[in-house]
């Protein structure tokens, strides 16, 4: 028998009997109808499926759903509170940080995760002195968002949106 799995997705609890082969991404989209995480490559190379698990950004395509038992999953949809857009949502609109929009929910979740990591003082590969607290400049944003590809090439707007949201949330 497949194990019983409890997933909490965007604040709603679901009890599921799952095939162990089911990815978190397919479970969200096909079983639960949560459509904001997108399937781009299904191999962990594009970032379109990025969601937050217990507040940390991860790839839903490389996560087995059965292994997420008891965890809190937040998609780009679930970032809204009381119907109000998240500061990262608003910044993406303001900065025109998308064209077709397919990668956007993944970009948004990744940006929320990246800003949280930065707030914790985590360094990145472009941080000159890893022992010191980094500054969030354009190069840092580009590096921290490198796991999210955008085929439309909206990177300039995406970087600007992440910088805007950072100013907003750290105000």
């Amino acid at each position: 028998m497949d194990p019983d799995t409890t997933l909490r997705v965007d604040g709603v609890t679901h009890h599921l009997d799952l095939d162990p082969r089911a990815s978190l991404l397919d479970t969200l989209r096909q079983r639960l109808g949560v459509m904001s995480p997108k399937k781009g490559c299904d191999h962990g190379q594009c970032g379109a499926c990025t969601v937050l698990v217990d507040g940390r950004r991860v790839l839903a395509c490389l996560s087995l759903a059965v292994a997420q038992d008891g965890h809190e999953i937040t998609t780009a949809d679930g970032l809204s509170e009381d119907g109000a857009d998240h500061p990262v949502h608003r910044a993406f609109v303001e900065e025109d940080a998308l064209q077709c929009g397919y990668c956007t929910p993944g970009q948004v979740c990744s940006a929320v995760g990246a800003l949280d990591e930065f707030a914790r003082g985590w360094p990145s590969a472009v941080t000159t002195d890893v022992a010191a607290d980094p500054e969030l400049d354009d190069a840092e944003i580009a590096e921290r968002m490198s796991g999210n590809l955008c085929r439309c090439g909206a990177y300039k707007g995406i970087r600007a949106a992440v910088a805007d949201a950072h100013r907003e949330v750290s105000r």
Binding site: G44, G47, T50, R56, R57, V58, L59, L62, S63, S110, G113, A114, E117, P123, S124, A125, T127, V130, A131, R144, M145, S146, G147, N148
Partner: peptide
């Protein structure tokens, strides 16, 4: 501070999402 080579090596691998997993 004690093993910066290890921090840099980890940070140069994969992406933020994958490093969390």
């Amino acid at each position: 501070s004690r093993y910066p080579v290890l921090a840099q090596a980890l940070l140069s691998g994969a992406s933020g999402q994958l490093r969390n997993m």
